[in-house]
Design a protein around this nucleic acid. Structure first.
Lengths: 204, 204, 204, 204
DNA sequence: AATGAATGAGGATTCATTCAT
DNA sequence: CATGAATGAATCCTCATTCAT
């Protein structure tokens, strides 16, 4: 019944260390040796606990995705109305882009991995689906989709540009994307007919 | 006559090859050897033409930025009015996300490098500044800023998600971000007073 | 009831698996891990049942020698006369060289191990002694010795050469080696005086 | 015009060292590290001079085959008649089996490799073809084939058995295999009609 | 009795870089 | 000017074996 593990937290510790290392030195900088040294585990234990360096990376990013999904949750749940939702989205964007630098770096690495490997694409997909489902509590699906893209775009901007925009502009952008021309707001399902154009017919 | 160069195009060939290699295998996959083999140049010429592998990468991405700036230009110049501009932006987003896969991969790699090194951040900055200046021919600076972020966000979405949104949704998002609530359009400098808050004065 | 063994056949299964593995990948390719995985036994049981990898190999080849001795027996027993014996030898040569490929590969591995370790030399010795004793039922000892060498040489030839000789040539060779010049045949002890020189008394 | 090599003999030295190591520890015992240490070259130079460990082994055995072919030549050329040829063959068998132990061990390793890889099979083929062509100067092709197999079988016997047979028995065997029943000798092409049976129609 | 956990040594190979030519 | 030769460090991974349970 007992696991038998001498050090049951070792696996988790290795993964946490891996994420720190990636955040600091990038995917190209990770190696069994560096991780083992940082985590204070023997080199040989790396390939005992994980089948190979690829599995280490995949597991690490799976954990990271869990974290980022949780972070999204803490910002986008229990919101009373659209106004609160908009403010929450603005907060989320700023947290993602200058809260912990670590997070944003890792998000970028995840995107890059996702361009090449289906496994990571699924992680991104999971995070995206989660974000959208939270947003759809207050906005119609198309708006949620657009808003999600805007979140990623604005967070990227704020992270990379030497003179990032302020929260007022973020708020303005969020407001615009959630506002349907003609005075309506991109609110509940009721307004959906307005967007009845083929705009939301996804292919593939 | 004076140069004495055996193969004047060699430098450029090395850089082009480097970009292909990065697109296929990622930053972690590049090495002097692989580049030299692919480009058909002697291994020794790598460190002769470039001070080290880092310089190769930096030069390669400098070239790539030139390319992507040019690509932006071909889409965002000589546009008659805002409507043409919106359509052009939609086109640009779709070209970036499913034109040549190579480009999108390299853009992601560039972003990732930019999160860690100032040099690459400046390249992103240059591209961003260029895009904005083109957009500002038709939209006010804040709108241009938001629109640029939206471009990146939507292109990212389309590249990574298994069921990317269609161009109608792209168009809808672009329209919303370029439309100012109250019936106005995010056109010239005149509307700026609405955003008169210090929203966009920032340093670092 | 008294043994307490969870799986009494486990040892045999490990040894059989080891032989298959050697036949496929060679001595250099065997390892505790590969054997355990193939045999479906826990890694830890390898060093529980055997003192080390060397013991596994030695036991495996001891089993194999039993097998090959038995195979020799099935071919060289209950033969009525020299003619039947010759035909049986021809059969044996062809069975060894193109019956189961596995056997010939393992014979070669055994020879190679025997060149370096006395233990394996004794296995070869045992097989050789057995073959000779069977042959000596029909031929004098010297002829048996020569015939045994010829068996090994012809089997080797047939196994390795891209254009192996046919059974007619095998038969011809067997006939010649069992025929004593001058019209006699290398039959019983009676002819021995011809080879009365101390030719086969040797030690080491 | 000059090679530019700092140490032109290095490649050859590595190969010679490899053969010594194989002779002592077997194929399973060779490694880049061991070879490099013995040969007194840096570890890194191993994969500079050879594409991988497999190439090292292949090249080493190619050299060894050259050596063994040359050895065969020194024994089997410039022989006046069949009697001299028989004596030479006996000498060759004894040189192969107890001259330099190294040679026999390597021959066995070569056989074993040949059972698994076509490359080594071709080396064996080359050696065999050479031996036969020398023997065919004095014996008909079938006899040469049989004699070659006998050489290998007797050499094997002498190398592995704790009480190897003496040269008288070797001579006897060689004589029998080169003697055609009925009083003839397996001499020149003229006698061939005696073997006109399908004994020498090779398949495959 | 039996085994999952663990590890240090060593496996092949790739690497960026130096340097003599 | 240009490059083939060379190398020590570091890469991932496999290994036989030990040991607590």
């Amino acid at each position: 019944m007992a696991t038998g593990y001498t050090d049951p937290q070792r696996r988790e510790r290795i993964l946490a260390t891996t994420l720190e290392l990636i955040a600091q030195e990038g995917i190209a900088g990770v190696s069994h040796r560096k991780i083992a040294a940082r985590a204070g585990v023997p080199l040989g234990s790396m390939t005992y606990h994980f089948h190979g360096i690829d599995e280490v990376l995949r597991e690490a990013f799976r954990h990271f995705t869990d974290h980022i999904v949780a972070l999204t949750d803490t910002h986008l749940t229990e919101l009373a109305d659209q106004d609160q939702a908009r403010t929450a989205v603005v907060d989320l964007i700023h947290v993602l882009s200058d809260g912990t630098r670590r997070d944003f770096v890792l998000i970028q690495e995840l995107y890059t991995l996702a361009t090449r490997e289906a496994y990571y694409r699924e992680l991104v997909q999971r995070w995206t689906a989660h974000t959208r489902s939270r947003l759809e509590a207050h906005f119609d699906p198309d708006t949620a989709c657009q808003l999600d893209a805007l979140i990623k775009g604005l967070a990227l901007h704020r992270s990379l540009l030497t003179t990032p925009h302020d929260s007022a502009l973020t708020f303005d952008a969020v407001t615009r994307i959630t506002t349907i021309r003609g005075g309506g707001v991109a609110g509940g399902r009721l307004e959906r007919p307005r967007n009845t154009e083929p705009s939301n017919a996804r292919d593939e």
